[in-house]
Design a protein around this nucleic acid. Structure first.
Length: 917
RNA sequence: GAUCUGUUAGCUCAGUUGGUUUAGAGCGCUUGCUUGACAGGCAAGAGGUCAACAGUUCAAAUCUGUUACAGAUCACCA
């Protein structure tokens, strides 16, 4: 049988993924096992797979595969969200390509195109996830706008409206002039931008006498004026007042006067309010109630006129005078030019401030007054905070609790309406009564009609006369129901599935949507299930490039994940991503870590090749295989005789198997702990080392038969069994290569899969034996080091004399791996031999070549210096009376042992130095 | 500006209620290997005054305070 020397993931991955799909091994139905549920953070339909998805979904797959192997009924539900704003942009672009203008379409016609687009491109990410090995229950694939989810959203809206938690009102909202919709506070990203601060001259409409020295009133040939600083000179068109601080001596004389808006000619009142910061600019503030939230509030307080100067798309409307029709930024340029020419600008300074941008379109947000729907947050926020504070929901890492708390304690009402067509249309219906608009909210038009008739009998003739709200709901208003609506828990709160799968177990997501999504899911869970939606939230980091920059399309610094998979295999990429990704830490991504993953697959592959290449001998003589190995300890070196186990292969193999079993149990214990604490990268690293270091580098070398000789069946079987379990441990991380190896290790029944096997559990292990092996390992390393540093050939057989404690159990293994001819215990040091120490044990290796005395002395003196330094730190403690009396007995005893060991080591080193010198 | 979190080897990170032979891992680096599984490999090795200072303690990478730097979240004054 020949196996290719290099592992080729491409064929293997294709093969096993189809196998899993065909057997429906990812599918889950409620049964009598405990459920372990994960709902995917729905990627939006406009996206393609990026590195963030790779990380996020790899983690989900690891957790779900592990849960499945631990005996849970694991269910990972995939899906996508409709992303109203982003999709709108895509669909409009598609229409444009076909020569269609959105404005020429009716709502229904437009939606037909939108669905067409969604059907065609909306599933790309989910398809790509299959290449990653994601074990999602694809039969459950959901979409935020499919029937169940759509209806759930509408019902929730109606319910919250009836509970008084949803209201409609005219407020200052964040307007996205590109998407032509309002967005929520969370969808505004403030970016530092370099602008100008313009100092404008507002002339007084009438002369006043103010002779005070520090008056803010200036004068030139055209008259008296005050200076107002602004970053947005175009908004003067909407000014309806100028405000100064009532206690600002510069402006006290202005009380009751008016000033003229430069270039506009309209006179506006001077108002006095403490809101103004006297230190900033000139201490005089122009008030534009229609375009600034603070100005708006002042407008309400002083009953100012509100002049909206913008159209929805950011151009100026009829209030923009000669600038009407211009874009707001073009207008700014022009108005500055005009004012300058008119001598109305005092000065212009460079200025840096933060400007809000739309998260989706990057357009500069325009504060705008408009009628929108809002959800009251204060009560739901309180509950959502509680369950995180008391750890009913645990965040990993926990530091995100702070961020979460801060947001919830300062929460504002959520603007949930969007002026778009693609989405869940708000179920509010309007009609007129005596010229006044009335509204009813109901899940269906018929129901709305019934309500309207009840409220105002005779006002509406038939259902078709009701006018439904044109707006749709924020996409997050559907995502926040995801853990519930996926199992139809809104429409059918008592159905089997919701009761079985909810609450879900772990949510894996990026920290940047902690408010958008995590917090709101918790609110929805409390509101509709009176139960949290998940018990753990695992926050991943952000994938960055080597230079620490975020990966983005515009920078072009993001590798194509599918290309990476083609190059390194899905297992390799999965491992690469996870190795450097402790929870919440950013990942400086470098392709080379995927290479490490690929190399690991290859290493496992080659271990298989080795084992499969062995000839197995039947019916071996078992004479030397008594159970003495179990009792083998340091003390039994005396019963070593001519029949020593040093050359007894069966004995050595038996010891090796025992050691490997215990080592595996020990590491499993640590891995289990890591998983409980969501330390996935640690768990992976430990698994990696268990396979590569302990299994490949040590265990396989220990039992490897000499060339051309067979291995005994018992050891062979044990090795297959160990390999089998190692693959199971690794399977959640590297599903493909482990499935392939697992099948190659033994004949499996038709349809068998590693993904359905039980995860090995830690069992009892003998720490003493593991410690003894550590010592043997150090002795082997010592011998190898001697060869290396002295230029001795690995082929030259050396003898080893040991003075001091040394467990004999591993002597045969030391001989094999160190190429040692014999090991003898001595009571005196051996003359003319090279030496090294392991702990307090001295090892001597006689060699034929001349010993470089000087080099030896140098090495010994360095060791001596270290040992003496060490002893000094120990003595410092022991000579401190307070330590000896104050520290626990155990700690003092350890220090005493350290002292004794150090002293014996120093003595041995000194003796060796003396012998040389 | 406010709050929070960090700072440990060249890089990325562990280090759990202070004490376990004067700090661990992976990668990288250095040296030597055509070793009958694997150069996508093997063996060995070097590398850190735990950001700085002060304090608490018998004992500090670990607890407290100050400073410096970095990051995150929120807010934002024209």
């Amino acid at each position: 049988m020949t196996i290719a020397p290099k592992y080729d993931p491409s064929i293997v991955e294709e093969k096993w993924y189809s196998f899993w799909l065909e057997k429906k091994y990812f599918h889950s139905e409620p049964d009598n096992r405990k459920a372990y549920t994960i709902v995917i953070p729905p990627p939006n339909v406009t996206g393609v797979l990026h590195m963030g998805h790779m990380l996020n979904n790899t983690i989900q797959d690891v957790l779900i595969r592990r849960a499945r192997m631990l005996g849970f009924n694991a269910c990972w539900v995939p899906g996508t969200d409709h992303a109203s704003i982003s999709t709108e942009a895509k669909v409009v672009a598609m229409l444009k390509e076909r020569g269609i203008d959105k404005r020429d379409l009716s709502r229904d016609e437009y939606l037909k195109y939108a669905w067409e687009w969604k059907e065609k491109y909306g599933g790309i990410i989910l398809t790509q996830l299959r290449k990653l090995g994601a074990s999602c229950d694809w039969d459950r694939t959901a979409f935020t706008m499919d029937d169940i989810r759509y209806e759930s959203v509408i019902r929730v809206f109606v319910d919250l409206y009836n509970k008084g938690l949803i209201y409609r009102g005219v407020r200052m909202v964040n307007w996205d002039p590109k998407a032509l919709t309002a967005v929520s506070d969370e969808e505004v990203i403030y970016k530092e931008s370099h602008g100008k601060l313009y100092y404008l001259r507002y002339y007084l409409d009438s002369e006043i006498s103010d002779n005070s020295e520090n008056s803010g009133i200036k004068k030139n040939e055209k008259g008296q004026y005050i200076v107002v600083a602004t970053t947005r000179p175009e908004t003067i068109l909407g000014d309806t007042a100028v405000c100064v601080h009532p206690e600002d001596p510069r402006y006290t004389s202005l009380k009751g006067h008016s000033v003229v808006i430069p270039g506009v000619g309209r006179a506006v009142k001077i108002i006095m309010d403490e809101y103004v910061d006297r230190e900033f600019g000139t201490g005089a503030l122009k008030i534009t109630p229609a375009h600034d939230i603070n100005d708006y509030n002042l407008g309400l307080k002083y009953n100012l006129e509100t002049i909206d100067i913008f159209n929805d798309n950011g151009t100026l409307n009829e209030h923009g005078l000669q600038y009407a029709g211009m874009d707001r930024f073009a207008c700014r340029k022009q108005i500055v030019k005009d004012l300058e020419e008119a001598g109305l600008i005092e000065k212009i300074e460079d200025y840096t401030n933060n400007v809000g941008h739309s998260e989706r379109t990057d357009a500069v947000i325009e504060p705008k007054l408009s009628a929108q729907w809002f959800m009251r947050m204060s009560d739901v926020a309180k509950k959502a905070l509680e369950v995180v504070e008391d750890d009913t929901i645990q965040f990993h890492p926990a530091k995100f609790k702070n961020t979460y708390r801060h947001w919830l304690e300062n929460i504002k009402d959520w603007c949930i309406s969007r002026q778009l067509w693609w989405g869940h249309r708000i179920p509010a219906y309007y009609y007129e009564v005596d010229g006044k608009s009335e509204v009813v909210v109901a899940a269906t038009r018929d129901e709305a009609y019934r309500l309207a008739c009840e409220k105002h009998p005779g006002a509406v003739k038939n259902a078709d006369d009701l006018h439904q709200d044109e707006d749709v709901l924020d996409t997050w208003f559907s995502s926040w129901l995801w853990p519930i609506s996926l199992f139809d828990g809104i429409r059918n709160p008592d159905n089997e599935e919701i009761k079985y799968y909810y609450p879900t177990d772990t949510l894996i997501t990026a920290p940047d949507i902690i408010f958008f999504w995590v917090a709101r899911m918790i609110m929805a869970g409390e509101e509709y299930r009176h139960e949290v939606p998940f018990h753990h939230v695992y926050f991943t980091g952000i994938v960055r490039d080597k230079l620490g920059r975020k990966m983005s399309k515009s920078l072009g610094n993001s590798p194509d994940p599918i290309m990476l998979i083609d190059k390194y295999g899905a297992d390799g990429v999965r491992m690469g991503m996870l190795l450097t990704a402790p929870a919440g830490n950013d990942i400086p991504f470098d392709e080379s870590i995927c290479e490490q993953g690929r190399n690991f697959s290859n290493k496992i592959w080659n271990a298989l090749r080795l084992i499969k290449g062995w000839e197995v001998s039947e019916g071996t003589d078992q004479s030397n295989k008594s159970n003495k190995s179990d009792k083998s300890t340091q003390s039994d070196k005396s019963d070593k005789s001519d029949k020593s186990p040093q050359s007894d292969t069966l004995y050595n193999n038996n010891v090796s198997v025992q050691w490997m079993e215990m080592r595996m149990a020990q590491v499993l214990e640590e891995i289990e702990k890591d998983f409980n604490e969501f330390r996935l990268s640690e768990a992976l690293m430990k698994s990696y080392k268990l396979v590569w270091d302990d299994f490949c580098s040590w265990y396989l070398e220990m039992i490897k038969p000499a060339y051309g000789t067979p291995i005994d069946r018992e050891t062979y079987e044990a090795t297959i069994g160990i390999f089998d379990r190692l693959m199971r441990i690794l399977h959640p991380f590297m599903p493909f290569v482990t499935e392939e190896i697992w099948h190659a290790l033994a004949e499996r029944p038709e349809g068998a899969s590693i993904m359905l096997q039980h995860m090995p559990h830690s069992v009892f292990y003998d720490q003493r034996m593991l410690d003894d092996f550590e010592m043997a390992r150090e002795i082997i390393a010592g011998v190898r080091n001697l060869r290396n540093s002295k230029g001795l050939s690995p082929k030259e057989v050396l003898d080893l004399y040991i003075k001091g404690n040394c467990p004999a159990m591993f002597n045969g293994i030391i001989c094999k791996l160190g190429n040692v001819g014999k090991i003898e215990s001595v009571t005196d040091k051996v003359e003319g031999a090279l030496s090294f120490m392991v702990g307090t044990t001295e090892c001597f290796v006689p060699v034929s070549l001349n010993i470089d005395k000087e080099a030896e002395l140098k090495k010994l003196n360095e060791e001596l210096k270290y040992a003496e330094g060490f002893l000094a730190t120990v003595m410092k403690k022991l000579s401190n009376e307070k330590f000896v009396n104050g520290a626990p007995e155990k700690v003092v005893a350890v220090e005493r042992q350290k002292k004794a060991d150090a002293e014996s080591k120093i003595a041995a080193l000194k003796a060796q130095i003396e012998a040389l010198g």
